[in-house]
Simulated assay, not measured.
Amino acid sequence: MTIMSAILLAQAAAAVPADTPPPMPTGEEMVSRIEANDARLFWGFFEGCDPDAVADLVHEDFRMVHDLVGLPLASGKQMVDQAREACEARAPGGKNEGYKNRRLLVPGSRTIKKLGDWGALEEAHHTFLEWRGKEKGWVQTGGGRYLHIWQWMPEEGRFRLLESLSLDHGPAPAYPPETAR
């Protein structure tokens, strides 16, 4: 290495501070992270019923708009607190003891798009099921579509859910769809 090359290399290294936050992932890495967040988020708020385990995924400024009830959640704290109360009601001795529900992503319905250098938009369809005992098992009770805005948090090196639009709720559609039969 020549002296000039060494000087240029040292200047380039000095131009990028060691504590520079990582850039937002793109492409398959971004998609993979959002998919993992989505699975973890819905597990914690539905089937796993452990909102404290996934509270770190929700932005403090989170807000949700729901087609049937309007603005049910106006902060990340409110979302976690409300889910915690619902999960406590499912526990032994709670008013909804034994209640179980499940959310399933409709295969092939998800799209994830980059939003500038600050976030991603996830859109998908999902269905909801409730446990109706050993005789009936899991019963599909409805479905809907959602759009999630995930904000990249460079200081944390991860995405957090900033906003959720939950819409097109209705009766459980036939599954598999007629076109797949």
Results as ranks from 00 to 15, higher is better:
P92D: 13
V54R: 03
D67A: 13
D67C: 15
T111I: 10
Y99E: 06
K95I: 15
A13E: 14
G48M: 09
A124V: 07
R63V: 15
F159Q: 02
V16Q: 05
E35C: 13
R90V: 11
T141Q: 04
G98T: 04
A39W: 02
G116C: 13
Q140Y: 00
C87K: 07
N101E: 14
R63G: 15
T127V: 13
L104N: 10
L129I: 00
K134F: 05
A91F: 09
H169Y: 11
L161W: 04
L9H: 14
G70H: 15
P72F: 15
L121V: 14
T141G: 08
A14I: 10
A39C: 01
M24G: 10
L71H: 06
G94K: 03
G143K: 13
L129G: 04
T141C: 05
T20C: 04
G48C: 05
A74F: 08
R145G: 03
L57Y: 05
W138D: 06
G133A: 04
A83D: 08
I7P: 14
H126L: 15
A89R: 12
A53F: 02
T141N: 07
M30Y: 12
K113G: 00
S75I: 10
F159I: 02
W138I: 03
Q151Y: 10
H148W: 06
L68E: 11
K95C: 14
V31T: 13
T141F: 01
S75E: 14
F62S: 02
T111G: 06
A15T: 08
P171M: 07
P17D: 07
G27Q: 11
Y146A: 13
K136I: 01
P154W: 04
Q151W: 08
R160K: 15
I34E: 00
A55K: 03
W43M: 02
R145M: 08
T179Q: 11
D168C: 10
W150L: 11
A18H: 13
P173F: 09
R90I: 12
F159P: 00
L147N: 05
G133F: 00
N37V: 05
T26D: 09
Q151I: 04
E178Y: 05
W118S: 09
